[in-house]
Simulated scan of single mutants.
Amino acid sequence: MSLLEQRYRRVLRLLPATYRAEREDEMVSAFLDGAHATADEDNPRPHWREIASVAALAVRIRLGANTTRPRHHAWGQAVRLAVLGGLGFYAATGVWTATRPPLDGTLTGLPATAAAGVVMAVAFALLATGRVRAAKTAAAVGLVPYAVEVALAADRLADMLSRPGKPSPARLPLDAVPLLVMAVPFVLVAAFAAGYHRDVRPPRLPAAVAVAPVAAGLAVAVAERAAIWLIVPTGALGEGWHWIAMWVSEAGLACLALAGAAAAHTVARLRTGRHSAAVPLALALLSAPAALIAAIRIAPGAAGEIADVMNLTAAGQALLLALCCLAMLTVGLRSLPPAPPPAQLRPAD
């Protein structure tokens, strides 16, 4: 076996084992036929375009839309549901952030993250109505404000670390929260590009679903404003608001939404007896980063009543999300169809 053939076979390890067992020799032969004859002494390597094509094929297979490969289809459906849910959440929180009142009852304006969330609302509506390419473009545009915020947060953190009086180790996780929170949308858009590939049929959801995140964001903003108007006249805002402030935040709302969705899915699963893997796996994929964000908000060295309440609430949210993630991942993995033997694998679409 030549050195070039060895390297081609190494690249093909990106593909599932069952697929390689069916097509590896054929693909290696095609690659070698298209390559220029090169001796091992010349240290030949696969072209980057060939590597990219194999990687793209691996993504399409592992996140497939072909029901003849039920295991890959289930993972593909899980990623696509997670993308739809993630876009919907950012759409709802973007509308909420753009319209929510501060403690004095006036509007907050439209910060960069709120503007990004509004763009995500457009991306969600486009995706829900089957316009996948336009939705990908809108989601990519929505990353621009996050990129600016990530750069600013990284600069602030680097400046703090370079000062003589560096932040304490207990303070560092809290200072890193903005970086982690604003990195999640980039992972979401990458999953969007990978999950909704060219083999996937565009979704066609009811029009009510397309505007549901906007309605949810407005409902949260109205509820928050009503709570402030009810509490402020009693003079209890400063005393009791910190008990619910951690829940009226993106992390808190994510915790409530995911815990509620996991509970609803569990009840529906027990009632109907259906054992779909895609929904619990999607909830696990969404719960994992949310649990990490909740956990990193804990500041063990902080002191004071408010700090204690915030730490306790963040710990509770992290634990709840971790349990949701573990439970949904267990249920989803157990519901996955068994992997087919190599002989039963059909050619790729």
Rank of each mutant, 00 (worst) to 15 (best):
Met160His: 02
Ala135Leu: 08
Gly130Cys: 02
Phe124Leu: 07
Ala123Asn: 04
Asp155Glu: 11
Pro145Asn: 09
Leu127Arg: 00
Thr129Gly: 06
Arg163Val: 10
Glu149Ala: 13
Arg156His: 12
Leu126Val: 06
Leu143Trp: 10
Val132His: 08
Ala147Val: 14
Arg163Gly: 15
Gly142Ser: 01
Ala158Glu: 06
Ala139Phe: 12
Ala154Lys: 03
Asp155Phe: 09
Leu126Pro: 15
Asp155Lys: 08
Ala138Met: 13
Val132Pro: 10
Met120Ile: 01
Ala138Trp: 05
Leu127Gln: 01
Ala123Gln: 02
Pro164Leu: 08
Ala147Leu: 15
Leu157Tyr: 12
Ala154Met: 13
Val122Tyr: 09
Thr137Pro: 07
Pro167Ser: 10
Ala121Ser: 06
Pro169Ile: 09
Arg131Tyr: 05
Ala121Phe: 01
Met160Leu: 15
Leu127Trp: 02
Pro145Glu: 14
Ala154Trp: 12
Ala151Phe: 11
Pro145Asp: 11
Ala140Trp: 11
Val148Trp: 13
Leu127His: 03
Ala147Pro: 06
Val141Ser: 04
Tyr146Trp: 08
Tyr146Glu: 00
Ala154Ile: 11
Ala134Tyr: 11
Ser168Thr: 15
Ala154Asn: 04
Ala134Phe: 10
Val122Cys: 12
Pro145Tyr: 13
Leu161Lys: 08
Met160Pro: 00
Leu143Tyr: 02
Pro164Glu: 08
Gly130Thr: 06
Gly142Cys: 01
Asp159Thr: 14
Asp155Pro: 00
Ala158Thr: 09
Met120Trp: 10
Leu157Lys: 03
Arg163Ala: 15
Leu127Asn: 02
Gly142Gln: 02
